[in-house]
Simulated assay, not measured.
Amino acid sequence: MSFLEILEYSSVFIFALTGALVASRAQLDPVGFFFIAALTAVGGGTVRDLLLDRNPLFWIDKPIVLVIAAVAAMGTFFTAHLLESRLKTLTWLDAAALAVAVPTGVGVAVNHSQEWPIVLIMGVTTGCFGGLMRDVVCNEVPLVLKQGELYISAAFIGAAAAMLAIGAGITQPIALMLCAGVTFALRAGSLALGWSMPAYKSRPPRQ
């Protein structure tokens, strides 16, 4: 199993856990748990593969992905009630999932010989779209769009760090690990320390 495949399966599992936690907050049945977990787990990668015209889609090529999502969903169905704060657990699991999914998208795009702007977009897409779909379908405020938090910015900077590392001659696995570390550090700093990017402030029109 390649390092990129390990990243991909890890991303699927952790994102599926976040989907199942959101399903628990919505009090869904086991089938609902699996649907939301699978949607979250494969959403970003599916958008990425469609944009790259990658055929078959990664979860069709490797159906084990759906089994991983099902295991995460059912495990959460029977244990979510044990968590002291499902929202806090969800937020930090989502940060971990983002940190694994972004380098997965970067690695896939690099292996498909894409130019650096496309690689950056594929990293952000893989990291952000699954969680966005999860939150929209479950009528939650999307974590990716929460005001005053680093999310898309963390994904973008992490992907950029990987591209700079690859451009400097660093091997792909090390570059992807750097991407994961930078992405998680920025997202964690935003959650724990309040790091944020400058936000737009409306101003009265000039007279």
Rank of each mutant, 00 (worst) to 15 (best):
2 S>F: 02
3 F>R: 00
3 F>K: 07
8 E>M: 04
8 E>R: 14
9 Y>G: 05
10 S>P: 11
11 S>C: 15
11 S>D: 10
11 S>V: 11
13 F>T: 11
15 F>V: 05
16 A>M: 09
18 T>F: 10
19 G>S: 10
19 G>I: 09
20 A>N: 04
22 V>C: 02
22 V>W: 13
24 S>L: 10
28 L>S: 01
29 D>K: 03
32 G>Q: 15
32 G>L: 12
36 I>S: 07
38 A>L: 14
39 L>G: 09
40 T>G: 08
40 T>N: 02
41 A>P: 10
41 A>W: 04
42 V>C: 04
42 V>H: 01
42 V>P: 06
43 G>V: 13
44 G>H: 09
44 G>A: 09
44 G>I: 03
45 G>Y: 03
52 L>M: 14
53 D>R: 05
57 L>S: 04
61 D>T: 01
61 D>I: 00
62 K>E: 09
65 V>P: 00
66 L>C: 14
67 V>E: 02
69 A>W: 02
70 A>P: 05
70 A>Y: 03
73 A>Y: 01
75 G>W: 09
80 A>P: 05
80 A>H: 14
81 H>R: 15
81 H>M: 01
84 E>T: 05
85 S>C: 13
87 L>F: 14
88 K>I: 02
88 K>F: 04
90 L>K: 01
91 T>R: 09
93 L>N: 03
93 L>W: 11
94 D>P: 07
102 V>C: 06
104 T>R: 14
104 T>Q: 14
104 T>E: 11
106 V>E: 03
107 G>K: 00
107 G>I: 12
108 V>P: 04
109 A>Y: 10
110 V>N: 05
115 E>Y: 06
118 I>P: 09
118 I>N: 08
119 V>D: 01
121 I>L: 15
123 G>L: 11
124 V>M: 12
125 T>Q: 04
125 T>I: 10
126 T>S: 04
127 G>M: 04
130 G>M: 08
130 G>P: 07
132 L>P: 01
133 M>R: 02
133 M>N: 05
135 D>T: 06
137 V>R: 00
140 E>T: 01
143 L>M: 15
145 L>R: 05
147 Q>A: 12
149 E>R: 06
150 L>V: 06
152 I>H: 09
154 A>F: 10
155 A>T: 15
156 F>K: 04
157 I>V: 14
161 A>G: 13
162 A>P: 12
167 G>K: 03
167 G>V: 02
168 A>F: 13
176 L>W: 02
178 L>A: 08
181 G>N: 07
184 F>Y: 07
185 A>S: 07
188 A>E: 12
190 S>P: 13
194 G>Y: 02
195 W>V: 13
196 S>P: 10
197 M>E: 06
197 M>C: 11
197 M>Q: 01
198 P>D: 12
199 A>K: 11
199 A>E: 15
201 K>R: 11
202 S>V: 12
203 R>D: 13
204 P>L: 13
205 P>N: 11
206 R>Q: 12
